[in-house]
Computed example of a mutant assay.
Amino acid sequence: MKTMKLKLILLFVCCNAFLLKASQVDTVFVESESMSKSIANIVILPDSYASQKESFPVLYLLHGAGGNHTDWISKVPAIKEYADQYNMIIVCPDGNATSWYFDSPVDEKMRYETYLSKELTGSIDKTYNTTATKSGRAITGLSMGGHGAFYLAFKHQDIWGAAGSMSGGLDIRPFPKNWDLSKRLGDYSEYKENWENNTVINLVYKLSGDSLKLIFDCGVDDFFYDANKRLHEKLMERNIPHDYTERPGGHSWNYWTNSLKYHLLFFSDYFNQ
């Protein structure tokens, strides 16, 4: 009987220790004045958030086309453990299924560049104990979100100090009929300038030295592989430091689940430098 009681006590202690040491997941709605609507975001707080006095770095993690703010937490639930492991806040915004994370020049209702770079980051910094400088912010994402992360970070280097892309659509021009891009930029044949001005590979000129820490990768079987390889070559030509990896794999959650581990380590090193 004593042995059984001891086992039950140990089980109770272990269970409570587990519950106490677990990240907190919130769904936070942020009002976007630029789009006149409330937008949902997943916010993951590390287990140390309640007790730590020092501010926390924030990683913004973007979903791909057809997805929403719940994609990462539902497809890769381990991100809750990563928030604990790396002691960072992780924010997964809803970027609309096909916003591509820019301010559309043809649709005034699509202003996701303004939302991410001003409204959301400002709200997160006001609501949580964050390191509210570029040294405490990083951004990455998959596919459309990889494009979005680089697009936003290249254009707003005062907001984000590090950026990543997983299987990112880093040159959207070869896909004029895909993923509602023509709804966001206009038909390529008529609005070519919109496409040229809003594709990541054409924004390299905004980079200088290592002012923005970069990591990106793509599977060799991915339809975005060629664009990623070309961006890598362009950065090499211009002596822009970056981490670039090619590995086996296609456009899949198996690939992104693995890829995220490398990005988190990279950002953790950046935050702790």
Rank of each mutant, 00 (worst) to 15 (best):
G64S: 12
Q24S: 13
P174R: 04
A22S: 15
H232Q: 13
N129C: 04
I139S: 03
L10A: 13
T140W: 04
Y225P: 11
F29K: 15
W253K: 01
D103L: 03
S48Q: 13
G95P: 01
K261E: 12
S268M: 04
Y255M: 08
F102W: 05
F216Y: 15
Q85A: 14
N258Q: 15
Y115F: 15
D171S: 09
Y128N: 06
E54T: 12
A50M: 09
Y225E: 08
Q157R: 09
Q52M: 10
M4Y: 14
K155M: 06
C218Q: 07
Y112E: 02
G186W: 08
V220G: 03
V25P: 03
L152T: 13
N272M: 06
Y244G: 07
H232S: 12
K80L: 12
T98P: 00
F154E: 10
L10S: 10
D125N: 14
Y49E: 03
G148K: 05
I42S: 10
Q273E: 11
K2C: 03
G186F: 10
L181K: 06
N87G: 13
K183Q: 13
S165L: 00
G249M: 05
G219C: 08
S182D: 12
A65T: 10
S123I: 03
F223G: 02
D47T: 11
A50K: 11
F154P: 10
G250W: 09
P93M: 06
D158V: 00
D243M: 13
G145T: 01
Y86L: 02
T121G: 01
L62W: 08
Y205S: 15
A227Q: 14
I172L: 13
F150L: 14
S189Q: 12
E246L: 07
W179H: 08
S38V: 05
K234V: 05
E237D: 14
C92L: 12
K192H: 11
V204P: 00
I90T: 06
Q273D: 14
S123Y: 15
P93T: 01
S38C: 02
I215P: 01
L212V: 01
D125E: 09
N197G: 03
Y255P: 08
S189G: 10
D187G: 02
F29H: 12
C14D: 00
G95A: 05
L59A: 08
V25I: 08
G148W: 07
S143C: 06
Q52R: 14
E233V: 10
A149I: 06
V58H: 02
F266D: 07
N197T: 13
G66R: 11
D222I: 06
E31R: 14
A153T: 02
D217S: 15
P174N: 04
D226R: 07
W72D: 04
D158F: 01
R184Y: 09
K80F: 03
L181F: 08
R111V: 01
V28C: 04
D71V: 09
F216N: 06
T127C: 00
D269H: 15
T114E: 02
E193K: 15
V43C: 06
E233M: 10
E233T: 13
W160E: 00
V200C: 10
K261P: 03
A153L: 04
V91G: 05
V30G: 08
H63Y: 08
F29I: 02
P248Y: 08
Q52V: 04
N254V: 13
G95K: 02
N68H: 10
S182C: 02
